[in-house]
């Protein structure tokens, strides 16, 4: 009886330890798989030609695998989304956290939560039906599916992340800061913008970096609105992102083309790891 119980204790210990390390195992698994399947193509094409080649023509007679268009599109798209989404989201977060009456604050918070739960294909659908035709009409273009439409959709998609993370950060600023500033004669708005927001800086930065991560990793929604042609990026040209490059060709690819797609995914993964690293630096700085 006692021995059986002891055995069970030991067994459970082993099981829980196994579970504990499974997250690490998965990270290693993902990294190893991406490296193993991504490196051969980079080797064959040559890292310089691959990363800085300006032409992607994977199905041509003499194929060319340069992913600079994808990299730049992903970077431009994310920068654009951040330029639109962050000011909008930050102002909204400040208002919700500090200025809004209680009822209104709850309404906005619920709205933001709902926005964050909407599946990306639904954003893509709305983008396809509303934004793409609108952009076409407004700028008098032959086709509205371009980088600009994608930036708008991405900006909307990073809003919930930016808002909810920075709102939490703004709320957690000690009340004394605010009181001291108000007592010195600053108005409420001045206090919020000059005292509270700087104090919540690292939390707000975390929100922005998370938003960048979400934007650079988004595939389906941008696939539906960006036109999906491997052009060098330009605001009103049809473009292809790192994510959509993988998604759009994977189903019919073979040989070196397929391997090159894995390499694209590897590049995307490296981007995400860099973002994670920045995130950790920001968070760690906060702890100090």
């Amino acid at each position: 009886m006692k021995r059986a119980a002891n055995f069970l204790e030991k067994a459970m210990n082993v099981i829980f330890t196994f579970c504990g390390f499974i997250a690490i195992a998965f990270v290693v698994l993902v990294t190893v798989f991406l490296l193993v399947s991504g490196i051969p193509a980079i080797k064959e094409i040559g890292i310089f030609n691959f990363l800085f080649g300006r032409v992607w023509a994977s199905t041509a007679q003499s194929p060319s695998y340069g992913i600079l268009p994808f990299i730049l599109t992903s970077v431009y798209g994310t920068v654009g989304a951040v330029l639109i989404g962050v000011p909008l989201g930050l102002l909204c977060a400040i208002f919700t956290a500090k200025m809004a009456p209680k009822g209104l604050g709850t309404v906005i918070r619920n709205a933001v939560d709902l926005l964050s739960g909407i599946p990306s294909v639904v954003y893509g659908l709305i983008g396809m039906i509303l934004i793409v035709p609108f952009v076409r009409e407004a700028f008098n273009l032959p086709d509205g599916a371009n980088l600009f439409s994608a930036i708008i959709v991405l900006a909307v998609m990073i809003l919930p992340t930016v808002i909810s993370v920075s709102e939490t950060a703004i709320r957690s600023v000690p009340r004394e800061y605010e009181e001291a500033s108000l007592a010195l004669g600053a108005t409420k708005t001045e206090t919020v913008f000059k005292i509270i927001v700087p104090a919540a800086k690292s939390g707000i930065l975390t929100g922005i970096v998370l938003g960048i991560g979400r934007s650079i990793g988004e595939a389906m929604a941008v696939m539906m609105v960006s036109g999906n042609v491997a052009n060098m990026p330009s605001l009103f040209k049809s473009v292809r992102f790192l994510t959509t490059a993988v998604a759009s060709e994977m189903s019919y690819s073979s040989g070196l083309q397929r391997q090159a797609l894995f390499s694209v995914a590897l590049v995307l993964f490296v981007f995400i790891l860099i973002i994670n690293l920045i995130l950790n630096l920001v968070v760690k700085k906060d702890v100090k």
Binding site: V27, F33, E218
Partner: peptide
């Protein structure tokens, strides 16, 4: 740290690794 990394990986990469694995 591993858990955070996992939660930051975009779903398209999961799709790819899932396909391979």
């Amino acid at each position: 740290l591993a858990t955070e990394t996992l939660s930051g990986i975009p779903s398209i990469i999961y799709g790819l690794v899932g396909m391979l694995l």
